[in-house]
Design a protein around this nucleic acid. Structure first.
Length: 334
DNA sequence: TTGATTTGACCGGT
DNA sequence: ACCGGTCAAATCAA
């Protein structure tokens, strides 16, 4: 994706793909939460999911840059395109161009623009696959709960500018309002060796191949194996959308084309299907449009997971293949 | 000992 | 002046 040039990706298509990636990312986050017990016994599973999240974040960042390049209109404002929003504010001329005074350390370029809200998510869990370091907590006037401020642990060693703000929901204190600002540009060293760079889209069409195994970078044809076969009937939650609460909702993702009803579902039956020795993981997707239902089927050699309309993923011990079919609506369903 | 969290201070934007 | 975001010393925990 680094090869993308200005205007190469239409803004609307980029928005759709970004939206899909965002939902895939959140789905993996929820999956990780659901499978936390399994992860304890099989840490590799957790690392795999961390790798997925990292890669999705990286792809999102790249896509958003492409989108910003092809659509430099005002809609870009408020997005998390720039990895360093403070610098962007300075470069835009709107903010005071104050270099960080080193003398005291305190008081250096404090406030970020309130017009850059970032992406707001309501979640029951604070876990999102990234390692955050809390750097502040404030009582906010408009809320009865304190707001916590987190930055990426790799801010200094990898100059990762991602931050998030966490606040308990006013309506439902069991949930958190999480505002993500900036994109992760870091790579967790614990998973770095497991991740290869995204192949150029010219070679992979609409699919992205991510390797989590020790497979050499240039050997993408390694046989996919499935140690445990699982039969996966269509979960009831996938057949009757809209009746289950979403554990995480994207409230503001800066992509007007997405529906508020879009969310990931991780039914208990799905979690129950994944045994402790199973390398296959399920992510279900619910959409309010019946003709864009989720896809989920299994075979002895692979398991395809319905993430979202026009997308799929294959997960194995060593590979995860994400497919984002931009045009075809006839991805097979069972 | 080292890294993470807490917390009051500082500062910029409104 | 007020509010909110960030810093960094102090403190805590592993």
């Amino acid at each position: 994706m680094s090869s993308c040039s200005e205007g190469q990706i239409p803004a609307d298509q980029a928005t759709a793909v970004i939206d899909d990636l965002n939902q895939a990312k959140e789905g993996v986050n929820q999956l990780k939460d659901v499978l936390k017990d399994i992860i304890k016994s099989k840490p590799t599973a957790g690392k795999i999911m961390d790798g997925i999240i990292e890669k999705l974040s990286s792809s999102l960042s790249k896509l958003e840059r492409c989108k910003a390049a092809s659509d430099p209109g005002p809609a870009v404002r408020g997005g998390s395109v720039c990895s360093d929003d403070r610098r962007s504010e300075i470069s835009s001329g709107k903010r005071k161009a104050v270099p960080i005074p080193i003398s005291d350390g305190r008081g250096a370029n404090r406030r970020r623009s309130q017009a850059s809200p970032g992406k707001i998510i309501i979640s029951k869990t604070l876990e999102d696959g990234h390692v955050w370091r809390k750097y502040g907590q404030k009582r906010i006037q408009s809320s009865s709960h304190d707001r916590s401020y987190f930055r990426c642990t790799h801010k200094h060693d990898q100059n990762c500018q991602a931050t998030r703000q966490v606040q308990r929901s006013e309506e439902d204190p069991s949930k958190y309002n999480i505002t993500y600002i900036g994109e992760h540009t870091c790579r967790d060293p614990s998973t770095l060796h497991q991740i290869i760079d995204m192949p150029d889209t010219k070679e992979t069409s609409n699919s992205f191949l991510i390797s989590f195994g020790p497979t050499p970078y240039n050997n993408p044809t390694k046989t996919i194996r499935q140690e445990t076969q699982v039969q996966m009937p269509m979960p009831s939650s996938l057949q009757s959308p809209g009746t289950q609460d979403c554990s995480e909702e994207v409230l503001s993702n800066l992509t007007p084309g997405s529906s508020p009803a879009d969310c990931f579902m991780l039914g208990d039956e799905l979690a129950a299907l994944v045994g402790p020795t199973c390398h296959a993981l399920n992510v279900g997707y619910i959409h309010d449009q019946p003709d864009m239902g989720s896809s989920l089927h299994s075979s002895p050699r692979s398991i395809e997971m319905g993430f979202m309309p026009n997308s799929f993923a294959q997960l194995d011990q060593d590979y995860m293949l994400f497919g984002f079919d931009k045009e075809d609506d006839d991805f097979p369903t069972t």
